[in-house]
Design a protein around this nucleic acid. Structure first.
Lengths: 154, 154
DNA sequence: ATTTATGCAAATCGTTTGCAAACCT
DNA sequence: AGGTTTGCAAACGATTTGCATAAAT
């Protein structure tokens, strides 16, 4: 992870009266290195901090807008760095076999269409859209060849 | 709910060696009447059956392709009738205040673009998309006027 | 020195499961 | 009767929390 990213995060935490501790740095490093949303278990494994600390820090980072919670299809919550930190607006490929979540992007045209759909909803209902979520559900290459969904959350 | 719908569901259950019991009928009726995804608690409240039976029947109906599990942003699972039973392809408005999920539709043009994005992913990666999920996250009219997210899952 | 973060173990809570009674065919 | 579904209460498991210690400022 770049020093610049670290600086931005540090500032964002300080603005919320939070410290950028070594544990939180480890956690951010794990998410950065992964390049895909990680489960709490994966974060714990990679970051080397206690489970409770991982959850607590993820909550802090989420509140400060550093980390985002990602909804998959299984029972595990997943976490990734906020998009405005990575400058990489993306969507998710969700494997219905193993639950793994990976990133993908769509054309600017499609993004614009999505934005316009949001505007339409905003003006035709009382709902005030904030952001959108576009996921593709299917089977990843591994689960397709392996036959079925035997997990590997390591 | 229409007799035709009941017929279809009955058939679909029978094909999986499952019965269309009164409890399951009540559950389907509750989902039909609601017209939006319901939490397990809401289903229990409306269907008048025990919690464990509700969960068990929802699982059976999900396996048989009658009911679909919907991911929101809160800790509650939500359920709705499968789209091919309602002939109503739709997406979800998810309120980040109260968690409530409602339906909305987009233009056929946008749907086609989404389909084409799926095809692109399919051919450029090993991932085999099955369906897509487009959600708009924001605040519902009630939560916007009420100020903030005080729950009402009744 | 005082406040905040950590790790452990216990608690929480939506969901799942074992089991005996009620139900359907 | 034979197999399935139901409701109750107990079990489960991911996540959260209480509390005493360690770290940061």
């Amino acid at each position: 992870m770049s020093d610049e990213l670290d600086q931005t995060i540090s500032t964002r935490l300080r603005e919320a009266d939070q410290r950028y501790t070594s544990g939180r740095r480890a956690l951010v490093a794990a998410l950065t290195a992964a390049g895909r949303p990680l489960t709490a278990a994966e974060v714990v494994g990679a970051g080397g901090l206690a489970q409770s600390s991982a959850y607590r820090n993820l909550a802090v980072l989420e509140t400060c807008g550093v980390v985002l919670r990602v909804a998959g299809t299984d029972e595990f919550a997943r976490f990734e760095l906020a998009e405005d930190l990575t400058d990489h607006h993306h969507h998710h490929l969700i494997c219905t076999g193993c639950g793994r979540v990976t990133d993908f992007t769509v054309s600017d045209d499609l993004e614009r269409s999505l934005e316009s759909a949001m505007d339409t909803v905003a003006s035709s209902t009382g709902f005030a859209p904030d952001h959108h979520r576009l996921d593709l559900l299917g089977r990843c290459a591994t689960c397709r060849t392996t036959g079925d969904g035997s997990e590997d959350r390591s």
